[in-house]
Design a protein around this nucleic acid. Structure first.
Lengths: 215, 215
DNA sequence: CCTGGATTCTAATCGTGCTTCACATGTTCA
DNA sequence: TGAACATGTGAAGCACGATTAGAATCCAGG
């Protein structure tokens, strides 16, 4: 399963084809399966036969949708990140115009966390394999990662300029520390240990206090 | 290279053999090389020929020191963690008896971070591959990880009982968030962006404020 | 110097997994 | 219905990488 709710929702908008077209649904099934296997076995360990089994078809059928194994992997790695950014940007656009920079950061923490845990196969696949990809695949991933990081950089910059970032924190390092706090969640979170709501509330409190000047 | 300073220092004490015995040094060279390749290519992608090249010998020579590829990998995964725990426990033992729980947490943050960045190949190998190992290798790794987590759990518990942990934080979740903050550093840190000292100082400030009650 | 163990090498074996190919089945619409 | 297109299959081809076997080399102690 690609996400905790069991419904595929990725890699569709970009295609411009309706989701109910059968071939589009099969394509998504393959992507979801690939995310799951990639997360569990890694770049080199992902076998097309495993993907095929999860997607409930035969391995060669994958070649009808993707030119090669590497293209499939590239798409998985890219889609999770791109989707995350779209989701985050939309959420930020919806915040009231008078929200403080810190309030916007907390919205970002919540949005990132909820989406991350929802599509955790894509997220853990990206986290674990980002450093293990061959160069030609890594390029598009790195570019997208940069764009995603830029959104956060702007959030931090705004907070800093508004005096909502403690003086002894370097904005760049603070951003990396926050990203660690929330990215790591995909590695340890299990529904049995805590609800997403609890995780979100704790993470927000954690980050807000980590960044804010002492009163 | 297995660590930023270029000198191997792992997997030696446990062997009971002197480091200057030539065969012991070769063994460490192979372990260091394996950590580097494992971190870069992943469990399934680590080729013995790559390890051999880094260690400057031929692939079959590895079999003189390790019974199989999996045994070599198991050792790499285990050693980084075990070494980290030993290092941390020693540092904690050296803290003055009157140190507060929060002071001890900050010592742990510093110790973990310095060691992690020093042996970063072992660390990133462990982070990226923990979820990708076959069961028989994962077992020993999980056991060691549990032991390491227990050290942190005790630190958190002490802080909680001393009233040094904010009321709205769940100690378990707080621990996971802190671990994310510091574990993630191995993924982004580069000497060119910030000195280790700077990273440590920022992380300590970040964590202390994230956890402490507002004055 | 020379011998026996320790260490390392070269060459061959063997399984595995991506990919291609030629064909089968399903689906749509005149 | 049946022609054209869209999907999916089973059976090879082929390269690559772990492992083993057996021989070569190194080196300390006599």
């Amino acid at each position: 399963m690609a996400n905790k709710s069991g419904s595929p929702r990725l890699a569709t908008a970009r295609e411009g084809k309706p989701l109910d077209k059968k071939s589009a649904r099969t394509r998504v099934r393959i992507l979801d399966a690939a995310a799951q296997v990639l997360s569990a076995k890694g770049y080199a360990g992902m076998r097309l036969s495993d993907v095929a089994e999860v997607a409930e078809l035969q391995a060669p059928a994958i070649y009808y949708y993707f030119p090669s194994r590497d293209d499939l992997i590239e798409e998985v790695m890219w889609v999770g990140l791109a989707d995350m950014r779209e989701f985050l940007v939309k959420a930020l656009d919806k915040t009231p115009a008078d929200a403080t920079p810190m309030e916007r950061i907390l919205v970002a923490v919540e949005t990132h966390l909820r989406h991350e845990l929802d599509i955790s196969d894509y997220t853990t696949a990206a986290i674990r394999n980002a450093g293990q990809l061959p160069d030609h695949i890594r390029d598009r991933h790195d570019a997208e990662e940069k764009k995603y990081g830029a959104v956060w950089r702007d959030l931090m910059k705004a907070a800093d300029e508004a005096g909502q970032l403690r003086e002894d924190l370097d904005p760049y390092l603070a951003q990396m520390l926050v990203m660690g706090t929330i990215n790591w969640a995909a590695e340890w979170w299990q529904p049995s240990r805590a609800t997403i709501d609890r995780v979100v509330a704790n993470a927000q409190s954690f980050v807000e206090n980590a960044l804010s000047p002492r009163p």
